[in-house]
């Protein structure tokens, strides 16, 4: 029994390895990009729109609202990263309804990659918003004594993100596999339903945590900028 889709290797040359994780990811990417391109090919700006457009608008506006509610005043700046994070994890996790499917998020490599992306995105948006010094100052808040703790916090939360997602998805798949060997009839279906719920919740948690981390470095200078503008 394979615990991770990384172990299913299709092609390998030295360091370069094409495994199931990558292939599944590409499939999901293809599905998302082609689906979006097909639906947004004929967008209408009137009051009567297609069902697919309506569904996509609901998803996009829902993500936008969530980002805004967390505390980012201009969600359109962040929706590319946070929205893609949510949609990718959600689609990857809900794919378990297909038999033989192994979600890429059940691979620690994928979750680490996504966590690293978040780890890099936080300073990216922070620097973009407040400049390098403004971002670096956040490590000295509330006092300079907190600097090591802030650095440790950044690293540990990245690790926590990766391990949380990996653990939840991997455990879900493992439980279903074990249950299939014990009681192969109805019970694994119920666990799969639970897995769907868990997968969506994890996608939500991952993206919301990423948003919160970004808000932490962006929101405070926002207030300062607003007060300067008011003066």
């Amino acid at each position: 029994m394979n615990f991770s889709s990384d172990q299913v290797i299709f092609w390998q040359y030295s360091f370069v390895t094409i495994n199931l994780t990558l292939v599944t990811t590409w499939g999901i990417m293809l599905f998302m990009v082609v689906g979006s391109a097909l639906i947004t090919r004929n967008l209408k700006t009137g009051l009567h729109i297609s069902r697919w457009q309506c569904a996509l608008e609901l998803i996009v506006t829902g993500i936008n609202t969530q980002i805004e509610e967390v505390g980012l005043s201009k969600p359109s700046t962040y929706i590319g990263f946070i929205g893609t994070l949510f949609l990718f994890i959600a689609i990857a996790n809900t794919g378990i309804i297909f038999p033989g499917y192994q979600p890429p998020t059940g691979s620690l490599s994928t979750t680490v990659a996504l966590s690293l992306c978040v780890f890099l995105a936080v300073p990216f948006f922070g620097v973009k918003k407040t400049g390098v010094l403004g971002y670096l100052k956040t490590y000295l808040e509330p006092t300079f004594i907190m600097l090591p703790f802030n650095i440790i916090s950044d690293i540990t939360r990245t690790l926590a993100l990766a391990v949380r997602l990996f653990g939840n998805i991997m455990s879900g798949g493992m439980i279903v596999g074990i249950l299939l060997s014990i009681s192969p009839l109805v019970f694994p279906v119920l666990m799969n339903l639970l897995g769907l719920l868990t997968g969506l919740v994890q996608a939500y948690i991952f993206s919301i945590l990423a948003t919160v981390y970004i808000v932490a470095v962006v929101s405070k200078p926002d207030k300062q900028v607003q007060s300067v503008e008011n003066q």
């Binding site: 990384d6 360091f15 994780t21 990558l22 994070l85 990718f88 490599s109």
Partner: peptide, 12 residues
């Protein structure tokens, strides 16, 4: 798998 990590990051 660090190659997968890098590849997935780039993919993302």
């Amino acid at each position: 798998n660090w190659f997968t990590v890098i590849a997935q990051a780039l993919n993302f």
